[in-house]
């Protein structure tokens, strides 16, 4: 989309380290990430469980203070005092994965949506604002939903209530963590269409955290593939998902049921952030290195010994892979 405008939200060199307990090594959950989100842009942050994507999203919301690095919003660095965080969270809203867990079962829909307004001391016509947010989220007529409680709603309707609660403060950015993972396939498309419509109507930016590459294809402008605390490939969705260069992205795409060709099923478990391998962090599971491709390209030494540089987070297609840089990817 807009490649020239300055980013709305920007992460620079963000590292988040959780201290190890009982003498265990520290967990480097996020290990050096640059990421920009521009106004009106939808970015998908994709990766397996444990790759640090949720930790990064929490840091972008100001819920975790990075160990190192900086997060800026609208040009100003994020401050971690209670007052400035409160102001920040009016502009950046979170949508969580499981709508049943993020709604208070004893609150009515009206209360759930109005909660943000009350916290932020909204002075105007609360009822009208809540009704507006509900109808924007596709719950029409809104009055019919005011007094319902979560258990009376379907999963898709609950997620719409959560989204309405996020919209009510007129944020500029939504951070959605697996927004449709707990929903049925038929409902999933409706919620994703809603996110796209909100972008079109309100110019809302969004960071969508997901393990679902199909979701990225459905709604995102740009995708960032994360592996073990680092973004390993990023760029426009069309390029990254149809012509992936990083062996990890290729493997992820190859195991989708729809994918052509032989699936590359990586062996082993998702790796442990407290034991990040030296060299390229993916080298121990890399099918290209194991298959001799890196040797033939003359980069096997680098794969085992040298950490690829951190990608700069901008809109261009980039890949953190010695083999891809050697012109083979």
């Amino acid at each position: 989309m807009t490649t020239s405008t300055s980013p709305l939200l920007s992460a620079r060199g963000v590292r988040i380290v959780f201290p190890g307990r009982h003498g265990a090594p520290d967990a480097r959950a996020v290990d050096g990430v640059h990421l920009d989100i521009r106004p009106g842009e939808i970015v998908a942050l994709v990766g397996e469980s444990g790759c640090g994507k949720t930790t990064l999203a929490r840091a972008l919301l100001g819920l975790v203070e990075p160990t190192a690095g900086r997060i800026t919003f609208d040009g100003r660095p994020l401050e971690y005092s209670g007052r400035s965080l409160k102001a920040y969270r009016k502009r950046v809203q979170l949508v969580l994965q499981d709508p049943s867990g993020s709604l208070n079962p004893r609150h009515t829909v009206y209360d759930a949506v109005a909660e943000g307004l009350r916290i932020h001391g909204h002075g105007g016509d609360e009822r009208a604002v809540v009704a507006d947010a509900l109808s924007r989220a596709g719950l029409r007529p809104p009055e019919r939903f005011f007094l319902r409680r979560p258990h009376e709603l379907s999963g898709g309707q609950r997620q719409r209530v959560v989204i309405a609660g996020a919209l009510v403060l007129e944020p500029e950015l939504l951070v959605a963590d697996e927004p449709v993972a707990s929903l049925d396939a038929s409902v999933r498309g409706e919620i994703l269409a809603l996110l796209l419509r909100l972008r079109a109507e309100l110019g809302l930016s969004a960071l969508v955290v997901t393990h679902d590459l199909g979701l990225a294809w459905n709604i995102a402008d740009r995708v960032a593939v994360m592996y073990l605390g680092r973004i390993v490939e990023t760029g426009p969705v069309e390029q990254v998902l149809t012509a992936p260069r990083h062996p990890y992205t290729r493997a992820l795409l190859s195991v989708l049921p729809e994918a052509p060709g032989e699936p590359v099923v990586l062996t082993g478990e998702p790796p442990d952030p407290s034991r990040v391998p030296s060299g390229c962090r993916f080298h121990a599971r890399c099918q290209v290195l194991a298959g001799g491709g890196a040797d033939r390209a003359g980069v096997a030494e680098a794969c085992r010994g040298r950490d690829p540089e951190i990608l700069d987070g901008g809109g261009a297609t980039q890949v953190a892979c010695h083999w891809a840089h050697a012109g083979k990817g």
Binding site: S154, G156, Q157, A185, S186, V187, R188, G189, E190, I191, L192, A193, L196, L213, G214, L215, W217, N218, I219, V237, E238, L241, T242, L253, L256, E258, A259
Partner: peptide, 23 residues
């Protein structure tokens, strides 16, 4: 149900998530 699943690389489903209205 089948159409609700995105097919990566298919231009028809790019920016066009498909669902089924109602519950």
């Amino acid at each position: 149900l089948s159409a609700a699943l995105p097919r990566i690389g298919d231009p028809a489903s790019r920016f066009a998530p498909r669902g089924l209205p109602g519950d």
